[in-house]
Amino acid sequence: MKRQAGSGCGRSRRRGNLHLLLGSLLVVGVVILALVGPLLSPYSPREQVLARSNRPPDGEHWFGTDSLGRDLFTRTLYGARISLGIVLAVVLLNLCIGLPYGALAGWYGGLVDLLLMGVLDVLYGVPSLLYIIFFLVILGPGLTGVFITLGLVYWLDLARQVRNQVLVLKEADFVLAARALGLGPWQIFWQELLPNMLPPLAVTLLFHIPQAIFLEAFLSYLGLGVQAPWASWGALVAEGVANMRSAPWQLFFPAALISLTILGFNLLGEGLQQLTRDD
């Protein structure tokens, strides 16, 4: 990607900061809620009182209860831990695969590039939903399956992006200089390439997070997600949709939290993109 001359647009930078601020507030807020929230609640996420099922929100149960009489507030916050945990792990996993893969292709070029990118082309051509279900059916649903399948989805975009960047950057003056100084590819990668690639990569990763939350939710909707009685946000929302008309609060609270979180990550990404563009 070509670096742009500074736009000299102070407003734009401010706006980037505004988005960053709002986004971080939301994300940090949700993370704190996920970490601390369950401690505030006197209920356990799996404790059932069947006679108290489907209660609307009140002073006792802030988010109401679910169809098995469990406290929805507690479950939603535990769900946040599960969902955010999955997403974090998935994003890191993708980074671990995509970064070296793309870097190898970009750095060595030629036959290596052709081969690696060829494999990517095949993988791109595959209907990913079908394959995700394939893997989950073979592995069985649950946390491991979700990690592996989600881990296999997003690195494609990442690898391609890294490869394109390395392709451009390896001809840059500072890299040529480092080469002339006799630095090995490993050192050049860590010292020269990575710091330069990081901001755009971070943007991509930040945009992948909402997608991963989405996909995990969809898998839960299909019944292939985390196993009961544990419930991710997706599982809670899927259950809420089923009871949408009788107990709307069961949909509203988890859905609202998903939305806020995704909004947060999107704003964060937007702000970061703005900043890198202005630099």
Binding site: R15, A217, F218, G234, L263
Partner: peptide
């Protein structure tokens, strides 16, 4: 119209559009 109120609206709108799963 970067940075205008309208632009902010679009950013929020697009983010919101991306925040509700289809099955909801």
């Amino acid at each position: 119209r970067q940075g205008s109120f309208f632009d902010q609206l679009i950013v929020i709108f697009t983010a919101l559009g991306m925040s509700l799963p289809t099955f909801v």
